[in-house]
């Protein structure tokens, strides 16, 4: 798919669909955590945020389906595609570890996602700009919430600091993928005034540097071997299991309505 230069309409549809993929897979990993959080307040926050991501996924997929005009709906995007057709970042599909892992992953991703959404407010596709405005409000709040947790954990006990430092070291190499655009990003930027990824990278880095300083955490060294593949549908081995679990019921009863 990526060898074919997308035209403007296809670039728009794929761009929206990818936003949906990131949101759905983030939400799916979050709901795996339900009933396992460190305290009841964290349980409520996790469910609340997962609801936001899943709600966003539905908006993106519905819009992508409309743009495509082939009679598919949101559930066809979530339940009837294979792993190679999902184009989320590899970071969001990584298996859940401990609470600190979830916090670090969310800080890294939300810091990018919020910048992406804010840039999309300026894009020339009206519908996408509207969806982005709604999503940005939610993500701004999530980022505040998880940033506070990162600060508490970084500047909490020596154990918590060691744990999140380790999470940060493990997830850091996945962040490069946020800024490695492909033909879809290029075409979307050219045709619809989409985000300038290199500008986003600079802002992201300085925001993260500032947050890590408050959290008394060390910024990891530059990534020598960044991970990529999500945009080409080349996932980690974990992804097939996530998809198998999510889709098993609908695939077991083809054509059923629920």
């Amino acid at each position: 798919m990526n060898r074919i230069k997308p035209d403007a309409q296809l670039a728009l549809r794929l761009y929206v669909q990818r936003l949906g993929d990131n949101a759905l897979i983030t939400g799916q990993r979050m709901i795996e955590r339900v009933a396992g959080e460190p305290e009841l307040e964290a349980e409520l926050a996790n469910a609340n945020f997962a609801l936001d991501y899943l709600g966003q996924a539905r908006m993106y997929y519905s819009y992508a389906a409309e743009l495509e005009g082939a009679g598919r709906n949101e559930d066809d995007f979530a339940y009837a595609r294979n792993d190679r057709e999902f184009q989320n970042f590899l970071l969001v599909e990584q298996p859940n570890g401990h609470f600190g892992d979830a916090v670090v992953r969310q800080v890294l991703f939300d810091s990018f996602y919020l910048l992406q959404l804010e840039a999309l407010l300026e894009c020339s596709d009206q519908r996408l700009a509207e969806i982005a405005a709604r999503a940005a409000k939610e993500i701004r709040y999530h980022l505040q919430h998880v940033s506070k947790w990162l600060i508490r954990l970084g500047d909490g006990t020596s154990e918590s600091n060691a744990r999140v430092s380790e999470s940060l070291a493990r997830y850091w190499r996945f962040a490069g993928e946020f800024f490695a655009g492909d033909e879809v990003d290029d075409k979307f930027r050219a045709a619809f005034n989409g985000p300038d990824l290199s500008a986003l990278a600079v802002t992201w880095q300085s925001n993260i540097d500032a947050l890590l300083a408050v959290a008394t955490l060390t910024v990891p060294a530059d990534i020598e071997h960044p991970v990529s593949g999500g945009r080409a549908g080349l996932h980690s081995e974990h992804f097939g299991f996530l998809l198998a679990e999510m889709q098993h019921l609908t695939r077991s009863y083809p054509g059923a309505t629920w």
């Binding site: 964290a42 401990h98 609470f99 600190g100 909490g156 154990e159 918590s160 744990r163």
Partner: peptide
């Protein structure tokens, strides 16, 4: 599993 988190907070 949450003990270290509550302690850090």
């Amino acid at each position: 599993d949450g003990a270290w988190v509550r302690e850090a907070a």
